[in-house]
Amino acid sequence: MSVDATTVRRIAHLARIAVTEAEVPHLQGELNAMLAFVEQLSEVNVDGVEPMTSVTPMEMKKRPDVVNDGEIPDDIVRNAPETQNHFFLVPKVVE
């Protein structure tokens, strides 16, 4: 499988990475080189094989239902580009 320029733009948008028209052919070449490389997986017989879900099999531990975190609004917003009264700010989102 390989990707065309339209797909490169679609994927870039899906990943929210701006690409210029000039970058598209280059990216297309790189992505296709990677896809060509992984293509060899198609020769492996995977009939009846379970896809791996956890590499170290074990039971998932659960946390008790206890409030032991939070109340750190200064820490939460300390690195934010733009805040007001502990709210994060972003360009207006219209619904």
Partner: peptide
């Protein structure tokens, strides 16, 4: 971008699931 592509609709089984099966092997 390549990661986004292999997870995207229509390619997930061919790439991601197959790779995780190979991982099992």
């Amino acid at each position: 971008m390549i990661g986004t592509y292999v997870l995207s609709a229509g390619y997930y089984d061919a790439y991601y699931i197959r790779a995780q099966k190979v991982r099992t092997l």
